[in-house]
Each structure stands twice: as structure tokens, then as C-alpha cells.
Design a binder for these strands. Structure first.
Lengths: 189, 189
DNA sequence: TGGATGACCGGAATGGTATTTTAGTCAGTC
DNA sequence: GACTGACTAAAATACCATTCCGGTCATCCA
């Protein structure tokens, strides 16, 4: 198998298991059965290797989100399913969960940056979906950036924040109904 | 002037200026012109003194919120005005701003706890307002806890979080319109 | 003689320094 | 010439000495 691939797999494993700060380049080299110098022929530094791994994760997330979207489904149906899926990754996906933990505990700058980037991408993806739906006449024209932001933050609040202060987690049903009656409804043409 | 009051004022000054961690009991005693031991005849420890100061701040906030509410105004008008006012305190009020900063930088547990408490109180206050409005027939019956939470988080996102990633701060007009069209509208009977 | 005080105590925070760890390099190997 | 791992400088960590600070209490007046 080619060395670049070995390195990527080793790095993915190590970052998922130990996070960014606690994985060392020696560690990655050893797992990949490669001299440390070899890593630097493919990636300029640790952070770039990390970014490559995160990029792969983002691809996975995009694919998982596509999997729950229904061709020809309504804007609401699809955006709801996608955001639920994407936000579940925070607990489910080993690397994502590890990074969130590292952000909370260590505040590693590289990790903070990457997590912010992921959120920006999700919001900008939702924004795109809104604009498409407006374009085909499903939704009223609106400030898509603002609505995308509000939608994302609402899901984040209901899925992630709620359970930190309340002991019963909200059901998907509750979330769907609540946002359907409020934000989504108001967007319809 | 009575010693308890002197101590409270000294503590308020010191906490506002230096935050929780960086104010020392010796400091408070000196400002209050009081022996350190005297403080402990009125407050069992530093944290209780702190809680007393924060309680005063919460009273101030409640009063400021009452000031912007209009007797006989609609639910939307009043809740909007109150939440805007309350959230402005995060930048405006010296102690509040200091505590938010300390929470971000130091994560002092006593501060974390107090900030969480303030948020819980705001949400529970909004919840009460919702229930009153439902009671008088202005709003449809609903899950008041959930709606209060969503409302609070939405305002927080639009007022506080938005400007961290976007360079133009949202106008009150934009926020009012957005939430009026979405969440508030859906609550009306 | 009882409320007030500040010297005092122990544990925690801080600072300074010796040691280890680690990202990144590069001379040497195959 | 692709690959390696010993090497380097810088950063992180561990260590210890010192300071700092919350809380106490024997002492002191009023």
C-alpha cells in the first residue's frame, strides 16, 4: 500500500484516539511503519496532516448527510434530517467527539480553528440549500445567511445544549415539531 | 454607616474591578476599612459574599428589565425589550462583563456556577411570562419551558454569538423582525 | 465582655529552573 | 533519490522554593 495512505490512516487513528495535542509525529510514524521524515515528504507539518484528516472527516459527514436527504423532499424535511444527522456526529464520530473534548479541556488553537471551520461550512451549506429552495419558489426570499445561522444555532441549542441543563434529552419528534411550527413555517412561500 | 453595608460595597467594587479570583479578602477588608475577621461575622466565606453581590446584580437587572417593559404591551413587545435589555448587560454592566471574561479566561468554578444560574433565571422568567400570556389567551398553549429556552438561545445567538463570526453586528431592527416573523408569530393564538 | 481585629496557619498558587518531550531537519544509507 | 532516524532548538513538563490567600482565633479594647 502506498506510504501516503498508510500515513493518513495512522494519523486518523491516532488523532481519533488521543486528539491533536497528544498525538506525536513519532507516534504516527511508528503506527504507519514509516520513518518520521517520510511524513514530511507528504505533509509540510503536523497541522497540515491534521487538516487533511479533518477534511476526510468533513467528507464523511457530507456523505452521511446526503444519505438521509430525500431526493425531491421538502426543504424542511431535508434540512431537518441533515442537521440532525450532522449534529449527532458530535457524539458518534470518534474523532469529532475527541476534538470537541480537547477544545473544552485544552483549547488547542488548531482544534478550535478546525471546529469553527466545520460550523462555518455547515451554516454555509444550509444557506445554499435555502437559496436553492427560494430559487425554485418553495421558500419566500429572505436573508439566507441569517436564517441559516438561526437554524443551525437552534438545532445546536436543542440537541447539544439542552441536555446539559435538563436531565431529559429532547426527542427528535419534539425538535421537529417545535421548529416546524416556528422557523420552518415562516419560511414557506 | 453599618459595617455590613461597607463590606458589601467594597466587595462589589472589588469584584467588578478585578473579578472573583483576583479579589482577595484582605483587599475587601482594606477597602471597607474593616478587619478581615469582621467580614466573616457577616458572610461565612468568600463565595457567599460573592453570591450576595451577584444577587444584588440580579436585582438590578430585574429592575432594568422592568423599566423597558410596557404595562399592557403585547407579549412579544415586552419579552423582546426585556431580553434585549438583559443581554446588553453582558457588555454594559461592569461586574457582568468582568465575570464573563473571567469565565472565558480562567473558568473559575464559582463564576461558571453564577453565570449558569443567571441564565437559568432568565429562562425561567421568560417561561413565566409565556405562561401568563397563555393564561390570558394571548398565546396558544405550548411547552413553555421549551419555548422560553429557544427564545433565550435565539437572542443569545443573534446578539452575542453573531458578531464573533460576522463583522457587522445585527441591528435591533433585524433581530426584532426575524424573531417576530418566526418564533413569536407561531405562538399567537 | 462581646464585637472587632490582624497575626497566624496550612494548603494552594506562583515563579524559576532543570529536565524531558517533540516538531521539524538533514546527513547518511541502501 | 526515496527513505530514515539521530539530531536540534524550542516548547512542554516536572520539580521545588517561595509567596499568597482564605479562613481561624487568641487578644484587645470600648
Amino acid at each position: 500500500m502506498d506510504r501516503r495512505q498508510e500515513i493518513l490512516e495512522a494519523a486518523a487513528k491516532s488523532f481519533s484516539l488521543f486528539g491533536y495535542k497528544a498525538t506525536t509525529m513519532d507516534q504516527v510514524a511508528k503506527i504507519a511503519n514509516v520513518g518520521k521524515g517520510t511524513i514530511y515528504t507528504f505533509f509540510t507539518n503536523k497541522e497540515e496532516l491534521f487538516n487533511a484528516i479533518v477534511l476526510k472527516m468533513i467528507e464523511e459527514m457530507r456523505a452521511a448527510s446526503d444519505l438521509v436527504a430525500v431526493e425531491g423532499g421538502t426543504f424542511e424535511l431535508n434540512v431537518h434530517a441533515r442537521l440532525m444527522q450532522l449534529l449527532k456526529f458530535r457524539k458518534t464520530h470518534q474523532l469529532y467527539a475527541k476534538l470537541i473534548d480537547e477544545e473544552k479541556e485544552l483549547r488547542t488553537p488548531a482544534v478550535t480553528e478546525v471546529l469553527a471551520q466545520i460550523e462555518r461550512e455547515i451554516v454555509s451549506y444550509v444557506k445554499l440549500k435555502i437559496e436553492r429552495a427560494v430559487g425554485r419558489g418553495e421558500l419566500k426570499p429572505c436573508n439566507s445567511e441569517l436564517i441559516a445561522y438561526l437554524l443551525f444555532k437552534s438545532y445546536l441549542a436543542l440537541i447539544v445544549d439542552w441536555e446539559k441543563t435538563h436531565d431529559m434529552e429532547l426527542t427528535e419528534e419534539q425538535i421537529a415539531t417545535l421548529l416546524s411550527d416556528t422557523i420552518f413555517k415562516s419560511l414557506l412561500r
